[in-house]
């Protein structure tokens, strides 16, 4: 009987000859916030996409709340409706208003009635300061607003687990804070989250645990203070040194 929210065992994933994930083992406890850091191409995004079953895996297991979601004959649609993911490029539906973006999943995947889905969406939009945007179309919103809508869209499914894939990387610097604020709030509320990020001070601030991904493996993991103050692995030290040199920490 496993108590972890998410358990990944020996996950391998290749694209053609390129082995992107080379044996990932990772566990998340309920209400835990884990940040994945590492250079571009280290496999952070691929790992998140594998967990959401957007990419078929080559070997290993992913267990969500005790259920092996990588087993054959799993209903992938049901699994996905319980895992929220927010993408770097927002991926809002441009032909739908904010409200329609947020209610689509609850209505079609969870089969909620219109009134209930709208109620759920309105409440969430209000909570994240987007109440007056509900009838706007995504093209009319700032990047920060779009990403907040994307987070609300994921939350409207009431997921067990939220995956954030570099959610601030496509944003202008002055819009980063409003999105990180939302994530911070979710962490406080106890949302279980796995966050791939380049925002080191944010990771340090919000994460219970930080994992350093390098060349498809988790090279080092630990409490934020340990990883950022006293990294043990030379590769971690190197990576963080480059971030410090770039003035990003």
């Amino acid at each position: 009987m496993s108590t972890s929210a998410l358990a990944i065992e020996g996950l391998h994933k290749s694209f053609g000859k390129l082995e992107v994930l080379r044996g990932i083992d990772l566990e998340l406890a309920e209400h835990e916030v884990v940040c994945l850091i590492g250079a571009s191409g280290s496999g952070k995004s691929t790992l998140l996409r594998c967990i959401n079953l957007l990419e078929p895996i080559d070997a290993g297991r992913i267990v969500l709340h005790g259920d092996d979601i990588t087993a054959a004959r799993v209903n992938v649609d049901r699994v996905r409706s319980g895992i929220g993911i927010v993408f770097q490029a927002f991926n809002l539906f441009p032909h739908m208003s904010v409200l329609e973006n947020v209610t689509l999943g609850p209505r079609k995947a969870l089969r909620l009635g219109k009134a209930e889905a709208t109620g759920r969406a309105t409440e969430l939009l209000g909570r994240f300061g987007l109440a007056d945007k509900r009838d706007e179309y995504p093209d009319r919103l700032s990047g920060g607003q779009q990403q907040r809508v994307a987070i609300v869209r994921a939350l409207a499914m009431r997921p067990w687990l939220l995956l954030l894939d570099e959610v601030t990387s496509a944003l202008d610097p002055e819009l980063v804070a409003e999105v990180l604020e939302v994530v911070r709030e979710l962490a406080t509320e106890g949302m279980t989250m796995l966050i791939a990020t380049h925002e080191m001070s944010f990771a340090r601030d919000v994460a219970h645990r930080v994992c350093f991904l390098d060349a498809g493996v988790i090279l080092e993991q630990g409490a934020p203070d340990q990883i950022f103050e006293a990294p043990r692995e030379p590769r971690t030290q190197q990576f963080l040194q480059r971030i410090v040199d770039a003035g990003r920490l």
Binding site: D77, S81, N91, L104, A109, L110
Partner: peptide, 16 residues
């Protein structure tokens, strides 16, 4: 394809 990915990640079926 990211539009389809976003829809599928919400739990929508291929047809939906």
């Amino acid at each position: 394809p990211s539009q389809d990915a976003a829809a599928r990640s919400l739990g929508l079926s291929r047809f939906q």
